[in-house]
Amino acid sequence: MIVALDFDDVAAAETLVASLPVGRCRLKVGKELFLRAGPEVVRRWSVAGWDVFLDLKFHDIPNTVAGACRAAADLGVWMVNVHTLGGPAMMEAARAAVDAGGHATLLTGVTILTSHSDADLERIGIAGPVDAAVSRLGGLAVEAGLDGVVCAAREAASMRALGGPGFRRVTPGIRPAGVAAGDQSRVMTPAAALAAGATDLVIGRPITRAVDPPAALASAEAELSGAGDAPGL
């Protein structure tokens, strides 16, 4: 599991991380926390033994994205991502930049945000429905040599079919049973996501906003205990 640190307060994020056991989960640092805390908190957590997913969704011209991915890998992060909508040349440049640094950083591609519905894609002007757009963009990620994609859990099986069992399926929008969906449109419980083919489950507010975050993590682990192991977890 990957705990999404969607905080606007650096001290609160550090307190939450200090309460969690290293090795039982991974950490996701997104735009807001990264802008408030800077790269040094990412480097510090990496040095402390945490696997950090730097979720900045780079989307720019190939040279700019390549430089950003190189800088992310130099921080020692476990995973960094780009927007597949940036196109093949951008993803290939990102892949080459990470590889050139000699790091073990995984490179994944965001397909369609889990907050987007078919109606959203129609308004944006992306040919849909969502499942078709995800498959198209996932195919581009495979061709560019990415290590996996960020997708909704319901799309994990089709992404596995495209990229093979070693192709990671990182799934946001994970909500334990009985927890509200919030601002996510395509959600799934941890056990259902694992059964659907996800390899990495991103869980945010159900853990980070819990009264007892370690207990909430343990509860999510318990929900997964009867679902079997997925490759890459």
Rank of each mutant, 00 (worst) to 15 (best):
A73N: 03
G67M: 02
W50P: 07
A68N: 01
A66I: 12
V65A: 05
V29E: 02
K28N: 10
G49Y: 06
V29H: 00
W45N: 02
V80A: 14
F34M: 11
E40S: 15
R70Y: 06
G76A: 08
A37V: 13
L33A: 04
S46L: 06
G23D: 13
V41D: 08
R36W: 05
A66L: 10
R24V: 15
G76D: 00
G67C: 08
K31F: 14
M79Y: 08
G67Q: 08
R36M: 11
G49N: 07
V65N: 00
R44C: 07
R70A: 15
V82A: 05
A37F: 09
L54D: 03
K28Y: 10
D60S: 12
V52S: 00
V82P: 04
K57D: 08
A68V: 04
D74W: 04
G30L: 11
R36A: 15
R70H: 14
D55L: 05
L56A: 11
D60P: 05
T64I: 11
R36C: 10
L56P: 02
V77H: 02
G23K: 03
A72T: 00
P62I: 10
E32Q: 14
P39Q: 13
W50K: 11
V52M: 03
A37C: 10
K31P: 09
K28A: 11
C25A: 14
A72L: 05
V41C: 13
V42S: 05
D74P: 01
P39V: 12
T64N: 02
F58D: 02
T64E: 03
F34T: 04
M79V: 06
D55P: 07
L35D: 06
V82H: 00
P39H: 14
H59P: 04
G30P: 03
G30V: 13
K28G: 01
N81C: 03
R43K: 14
L27V: 15
P62Q: 07
D74H: 06
H59K: 11
V65P: 01
R24F: 13
I61K: 04
R26A: 15
V52E: 05
N81S: 10
K57I: 09
T64Q: 06
D60H: 04
L33M: 09
C25R: 03
A71D: 08
G38K: 08
H59Y: 13
V65M: 09
V77Q: 01
